[in-house]
């Protein structure tokens, strides 16, 4: 039984650094809504929200390419929340990083256990 993310996270860390420009990322202030166990990695429902965010980036740290999506909230965004469905290659951490209006960053991490991977490997 493999429990831990099965790939090194270097690419994911690079993606985070690109997004934050190397700034410190605080824990908390971001809600990441993901199932604990996903039977099918091809379509995993994920929701993110963060009070006061201008953008939220979503990453799947164990995927072949960690980037998933970036939500940029415009002037008429009714709230800073969005949800979508994503692919996960296997059990891994899903990370949401919010860019706040004051230029700070916050993140949330959640492990999702995947029964059947979603990258056709």
């Amino acid at each position: 039984l493999t429990v831990l993310p099965f790939r090194a996270n270097a690419a994911g860390e690079d993606a985070i650094a690109d997004f934050t420009g190397g700034a410190d990322v605080a824990e908390g202030g971001v809600n990441l809504d993901a199932p604990e166990i996903a039977e099918n990695g091809n379509t995993v429902p994920i929701g993110v929200s963060a009070e006061g965010a201008t953008a939220i980036m979503l990453l799947a740290m164990g995927n072949p390419t960690p980037g998933v999506a970036t939500f940029n909230f415009g002037e008429l965004a009714g709230s800073t929340m969005a949800s979508t469905r994503i692919r996960l290659a296997g059990t891994q951490d899903v990370v949401a990083i919010a860019k706040m209006a004051d230029g700070s960053f916050a993140k949330a991490t959640k492990e999702v256990k995947v029964t059947i991977g979603g990258c056709g490997g």
Binding site: T65, V68, A69, S79
Partner: peptide, 25 residues
């Protein structure tokens, strides 16, 4: 006027679904 601008990577599922809120002025 922009409400949501989303970039998508290959990790988005087949038949992309997005749910979000918009203010209607």
């Amino acid at each position: 006027t922009m409400a949501l601008d989303m970039t998508m990577e290959p990790a988005i599922s087949t038949n992309p679904y997005v749910e979000f809120d918009v203010t209607i002025p």
